[in-house]
Structure formats: C-alpha cells, structure tokens
C-alpha cells in the first residue's frame, strides 16, 4: 500500500518528505534504538518511533525505509523536516502510541 493511502486511512500528519509518499510500504518496524533499526529493519518498511531528531532521517535514508511515523504527538524540529524533504523520506506523525499505530498498520498490511 502506498504511504499516501496509509496516511489517509490512519489520519497521519505529514510533516515533510511529501515527494516520497507514492512509495509502497512493505511492512513496518517499531523501535527507538537506532542500531536496532540499522541491524534489523528492511528496505520499504515504515519505521514507528518516538525519536524526533535529524539522525532518524539519516538512518531511514541509509536503510531505504518507506517512511517514518513519529508517535505520541511528538513533533520533529524544523531542521528534521528540511532533512526529510532533502532525502525524500515521508515524515509522518500521530497522537497515538506506537502500540496502537503498529497494530493498525499490521492489520492493514498483513
């Protein structure tokens, strides 16, 4: 499913990286540890996290992830949004918890 469609269905906020929203999401990975994501996430997955700093975009780009979803209503700083635009990584947000949004994404994509 396209990131744009996933975002619509889940009511996600799009902070940046809109040029990447036509990418297909092939599953997800839920973690707040960057090395865990580096070691275990796969390309085209959606990354669900509470981390909001610039390195999140660097990791997402290096791993060719489909998008980043920031949970709990946390908001990325302006420079993180700029980075998401530069790297074409959709940066999305939700007020829901990682557990809730991961559950919904799982039931949509499984």
């Amino acid at each position: 499913m396209k990131i744009s469609e996933l975002a619509d269905r889940l009511g996600l906020i799009l902070y940046g990286g809109s040029s990447g929203i036509d990418k297909d999401a092939e599953g997800g990975y839920c973690s707040d540890l960057l090395s865990d994501v580096m070691g275990h996430a796969h390309a085209n997955q959606v990354w669900i996290t509470v981390q909001t700093h610039k390195n999140v975009i660097a990791v997402a780009s290096l791993k060719e992830l489909a998008a980043v979803i920031i949970v709990q209503g946390l908001e990325p700083a302006p420079e993180v949004i700029v980075q998401s635009e530069a790297e074409n990584i959709p940066l999305l947000g939700t007020s829901e918890s990682a557990f809730e949004i991961a559950g919904k994404i799982y039931s949509i994509l499984k």
């Binding site: 960057l34 070691g39 700093h53 390195n55």
Partner: peptide
C-alpha cells in the same frame, strides 16, 4: 536518549 548507545553497534559492524 537519542537512541544511540544501545550496545548493538559493534555486533552490527561484525554482522
């Protein structure tokens, strides 16, 4: 706090 320093870096390097 930034999510670094979880003690997984060197094993990622090795793998």
């Amino acid at each position: 706090e930034m999510g670094f320093g979880a003690g997984m870096g060197l094993s990622n390097m090795k793998n």
